[in-house]
Amino acid sequence: MAIIALVAAKGSPGVTTAALACTLTWHHRVVLAECDPAGGSILAGYLGGALDGPRGIGELAVGELRDGNLEEAFWSQLVDLDAPKRERLLLPGVVDPVQAGSVTPLWQRFADFFVELEKGQPAYDVIVDCGRLQVVAPPWPLLRAASVVLVVTSAHLPHLSSARATVNAIERDFADHRVPAGSLRLLLVGDGHGRGEVSKALGLPVIAQLPHDPRTAEVLSHGGTVRGGRPLMRAADSLEVPVRTLMDRRRARLSWPSSQEVPHAV
């Protein structure tokens, strides 16, 4: 499935929670990469900071800039969320603002590397938590390289305006960089307006809606025992099917002969 990128609209909650829930429930090997320039939260939150030394994308970026050893160093920077299976791995995000300066020039390098993980032995999909776009240096190359891009937003009116601005920004960037159509979808979190209303308002299909489940969200944010039968985890598990279907359909479309290409439209 290659790269699945999640990005939040300004003020919308839930992108990291949704990404982590998917990582813990999906049925293929997956790496969750925290690529939010504002910093990662899973290490200090869900994992309680319990690691034997610094690890994550910041350390990886410093090593890559110094030694150019991304391929060799990558696997040593991951955290096994379901040890010792190495089926659900985490690349923690930056924990020091200074690290962000090292990561920013490497977004394209990381995008290219993540795409190749699908071809490895064993193969891994990569769920990328891109955070919010309203930062100094958004990880645009990761969004452009993704097979599926999910804009995570609440279904309440105050958040829909920000979601519209985020969708517009992504559509403009994709058009400018000739990103093939069909990767962009909405992922709703919590209660609010119906999927049809939100889709019509934002001009984009809704792929799924994750339920309001504060108990599970608290565990995913601050640590504890994750219960697979909880509503949020069941919904995250179910999300894998439409995401994979969308990816397969898009790949089939991109494999058409060039004479059958359609005009760009996100």
Rank of each mutant, 00 (worst) to 15 (best):
2 A>R: 15
3 I>P: 12
4 I>Y: 10
5 A>Y: 01
7 V>Y: 02
7 V>I: 11
9 A>Y: 04
9 A>R: 04
18 A>F: 12
18 A>K: 11
19 A>W: 13
19 A>R: 14
21 A>V: 10
23 T>S: 10
26 W>D: 12
30 V>C: 11
32 L>I: 08
36 D>M: 05
37 P>E: 00
40 G>C: 07
44 A>L: 12
44 A>D: 13
48 G>F: 03
52 D>R: 13
52 D>N: 12
54 P>G: 07
54 P>Y: 03
56 G>D: 05
56 G>C: 07
56 G>K: 06
64 E>W: 07
66 R>W: 00
67 D>M: 04
68 G>F: 02
69 N>I: 11
70 L>N: 04
73 A>S: 10
77 Q>K: 13
78 L>W: 07
80 D>H: 05
82 D>I: 04
90 L>T: 06
91 L>Y: 09
96 D>T: 06
99 Q>S: 07
102 S>M: 06
104 T>K: 04
104 T>R: 11
106 L>N: 04
114 F>Y: 13
118 E>Q: 15
119 K>Q: 14
120 G>M: 06
121 Q>D: 15
127 I>F: 10
128 V>E: 10
132 R>F: 05
135 V>L: 12
138 P>G: 08
138 P>W: 12
145 A>I: 01
151 V>K: 04
151 V>Q: 02
154 S>H: 12
154 S>K: 12
156 H>Q: 15
160 L>T: 05
166 T>C: 15
167 V>T: 11
167 V>P: 07
169 A>Y: 08
170 I>D: 05
173 D>Y: 10
175 A>F: 08
176 D>H: 11
176 D>F: 09
181 A>M: 05
182 G>R: 11
184 L>I: 05
186 L>I: 08
187 L>F: 04
192 G>I: 06
192 G>K: 08
193 H>A: 10
196 G>R: 11
197 E>F: 09
197 E>H: 10
201 A>R: 12
202 L>E: 11
204 L>H: 08
207 I>Q: 02
209 Q>A: 15
210 L>P: 05
210 L>M: 04
210 L>H: 01
215 R>G: 13
216 T>G: 09
220 L>C: 09
220 L>I: 03
224 G>A: 01
225 T>N: 07
225 T>Q: 15
226 V>L: 11
228 G>R: 14
228 G>W: 03
233 M>C: 06
233 M>A: 10
234 R>A: 07
235 A>D: 02
237 D>H: 12
248 D>F: 08
251 R>Q: 15
252 A>D: 12
256 W>Y: 08
259 S>N: 01
261 E>F: 14
262 V>W: 13
263 P>V: 05
263 P>G: 08
266 V>H: 15
